[in-house]
Design a protein around this nucleic acid. Structure first.
Lengths: 187, 187
DNA sequence: GGTAGAGTGGTCAATCTGATCAAAGAAATT
DNA sequence: AATTTCTTTGATCAGATTGACCACTCTACC
């Protein structure tokens, strides 16, 4: 087991994000779900906002990094990668950077997370077939710094990735959570 | 343990997708990473394609379901959900549909996968804090049909979700994998 | 009260759009 | 190989939209 927090310098999660989405941003994002390329004029009319507001909000969100690349919307199945799997990996402490760099060089590696607990990395991968998954898993296992891997194939996506419930959460403003414990009223 | 393949009717993965992205689609998607709302005129010029082609390709991809909702691009951290975790859950076979429906009703549940192996569901969740994560995990645990859960907090995103390597893979056409075993040449 | 930032509505020339068309090219079928 | 079907291309047009700019208003903060 290794401590990845200090050892891995490259991280999106470790970057302090200055932008929090306010209700207007979120309304805009929900509207963009209908048509991600809708003209700002149309969005403004639909949302009852000034056109300049919609424009500047979209620009700001785009510039701030709070939105991932558009290509993250692509279903890997559309690229012939119908098999999804999660690979757990234990790392060798002296080759952490090489391991991560090597993993980043494998196209089928979609994402790589460092969890608390009994494994060092959780790697989300895709493949064209179970046999191809074996190949990808081997490729991962042979990365420098990878000591041990375990592959778990995903049989079904029961609830596809979604954020609309978070965006639509009625929580009054900024980043306050909608599902926080209710405030106690004085009685 | 339960067999989720037959029991869960609602699934995106189970739907047969007719659209496979060809090299032109993929070039367009890579160009859209620079600016997801770039005018088709500009994209066409950059890609050396007719404007009508870009337009019809984007329309086709949009209509086919091969792209997820735009809101999936949102980093939950921008919504105050800075804590990410994976919850493993074992299900009670007689309440599977209720379990899934209940999970779908929890805004912090981003995604729900059914893996092969020793657990029934892998649930990706977010929360505002570790304490909030405890609350979310409890909410999940109390869903009908959930028999046992285990929560693993993600400490760091080592490689953020990305598909560009798959899109940019030089594999000649359609959905053929670029990292498939090389064809044996006759010698 | 003063200041800074955000939102509003308006303006303008340039750019873009959706829709349509005919022709050419590419792919699929017979 | 010939035929059919599909896709791409380039062109056209009136209307829509854009980026940039402006003055004004509103809101939040000091």
């Amino acid at each position: 087991m290794v401590n990845l927090i200090k050892e891995i310098p490259i991280s999106m999660r470790g970057v302090i994000r200055s932008q929090q989405l306010d209700p207007t941003d979120r309304r805009i994002l929900l509207a963009l779900d209908e048509d991600p390329r809708a003209p700002t004029m149309v969005l403004a009319q639909r949302l009852g906002l000034a056109r300049g507001t919609v424009q500047s909000r979209i620009e700001r969100m785009t510039a701030s990094g709070v939105l991932r690349a558009n290509s993250t919307r692509v279903d890997p199945e559309g690229l012939g990668r119908g098999v999804l799997a999660e690979v757990s990996a234990e790392l060798d402490q002296s080759h952490i950077n090489e391991a991560v760099a090597a993993l980043g060089g494998i196209p089928e590696v979609l994402e790589c997370l460092a969890p608390a607990g009994d494994t060092d990395l959780l790697i989300r991968v895709v493949a064209t077939s179970p046999d191809d998954l074996y190949r990808v898993s081997e490729e991962i296992r042979l990365c420098p710094g990878i000591r041990r891997t375990s592959t778990r194939m995903i049989l079904r996506t029961v609830i596809p990735y979604r954020t609309t419930a978070l965006l639509g959460a009625d929580d009054g403003g900024g980043a306050a959570p909608s599902s926080a414990p209710p405030k106690r009223r004085r009685t």
